[in-house]
């Protein structure tokens, strides 16, 4: 069918003009497109594909779960500008998650859940919708329930400061896909950190009520902060083979950024202890107990996934 479109002055009077035409330039396409289409996904020499995939899942799950949390603000934010800004951040993180999950699947298909034969569900969706909570590798900071706007600002500030430092280094990954994903994400995360930094300062110096809420939000999330800098075996191996970043290496930089924001806002570092790791079942558990990267999660993740996955799981052979 010829893709001929006219743009006469009155063309937009017909809301349906072109709707039946094979309109290939719809922004999201008319079919599912592999987010990594046309990208060379060969695993670099000397890199263990399983390690690369597991590492991508960690970074991808962080983004996916926080995106799901932030999207909860849609139609609920303090004003329209914040509603739009929070959706923007959620969309950016969702985009990062899609690329990272697709990268994981392309590196090691054995980590992708199997579905009945002939199921058209693409790999990124199998990973997002058909894994259970213990298979998610995200840090616990992103999964706990949202709290109020102040706590949301704190979470975005903590998360984006950390992730920006990580992905900034990841732009030099030996894996070309990860390096490209990181380069795109760095721009987005810089905006997220600015948004959160501006609001942190605004709330700290706004009213007594906003300051009280901000400090409460910081106290509530602080126990989950140090987990972000603990090195998981997968991260250590990924860093060693030149594809990943050891989070312990960015701790000093990130803490310095945070100290700057806290100082400008006149807010002290909370005196709150980190959330403990929890020993799990089975012999394969690490001796130090399990945290988010090991699949050890809070109660909140299961409920979040139950909502996120309900429609997809009801239609394992469906296409969307």
């Amino acid at each position: 069918m010829p893709d001929v479109r006219t743009h006469e002055p009155d063309d937009h009077d017909n809301a349906y003009a072109g709707l039946l035409v094979n309109d290939t330039h719809w922004a999201f396409g008319t079919d599912f497109e592999d987010p990594l289409a046309g990208v060379d996904t060969t695993v670099p020499d000397g890199v263990d594909p399983a390690t690369l995939a597991a590492y991508c899942l960690m970074l991808g799950d962080d983004a996916l779960v926080l995106s799901q949390r932030l999207a909860e603000w849609c139609s609920n934010a303090p004003d329209l500008e914040e509603d739009i800004a929070l959706s923007n951040i959620a969309l950016d993180l969702l985009g990062q998650a899609r690329l990272l999950l697709a990268r994981a699947a392309a590196a090691d298909g054995s980590q992708v859940p199997a579905l009945p034969d002939g199921s058209p569900v693409p790999d990124e969706d199998r990973l997002a919708f058909f894994r259970d909570a213990p298979q998610f590798r995200n840090v616990r900071l992103v999964e706990v329930p949202g709290g109020d706007f102040a706590q949301t600002v704190v979470r975005i500030l903590l998360f984006s400061s950390w992730r920006l430092a990580l992905l900034d280094r990841l732009t030099r990954s030996r894996d070309g896909v990860l390096a490209a994903v990181a380069a795109k994400a760095v721009k987005e995360l810089t905006y997220h950190r600015d948004f959160a930094g501006r609001w942190f300062l605004t709330l700290a110096r706004g009213t007594d009520e906003s300051r009280r809420r901000l400090v409460a939000g910081l106290d509530a999330l602080w126990p989950l902060w140090s987990e972000l800098f603990e090195t998981h075996d997968v991260e250590r191996a990924a860093a060693r083979s030149g594809i990943g970043v050891d989070p312990a290496d960015v701790a000093a930089d990130v803490e310095a950024v945070l100290d700057q924001v806290l100082a400008a806002s006149g807010v002290d570092r909370p005196a709150v202890a980190p959330l403990a790791a929890v020993q799990g079942d089975g012999a394969a558990q690490p001796a130090h107990g399990r945290k988010g990267r090991d699949g050890g999660h809070t109660e909140a993740l299961g409920a979040l996934l139950a909502e996120m996955q309900v429609v997809a799981r009801a239609h394992p052979g469906g296409q969307w």
Partner: peptide, 24 residues
């Protein structure tokens, strides 16, 4: 929160965000 694919989630979130922009 329940969109059945990540691509649909992105489309829906962007759409609802557009509506906020229209309101603005």
């Amino acid at each position: 929160g329940r969109a059945p694919s990540l691509r649909r989630k992105a489309i829906l979130l962007a759409k609802v965000q557009d509506e906020a922009g229209h309101g603005l």
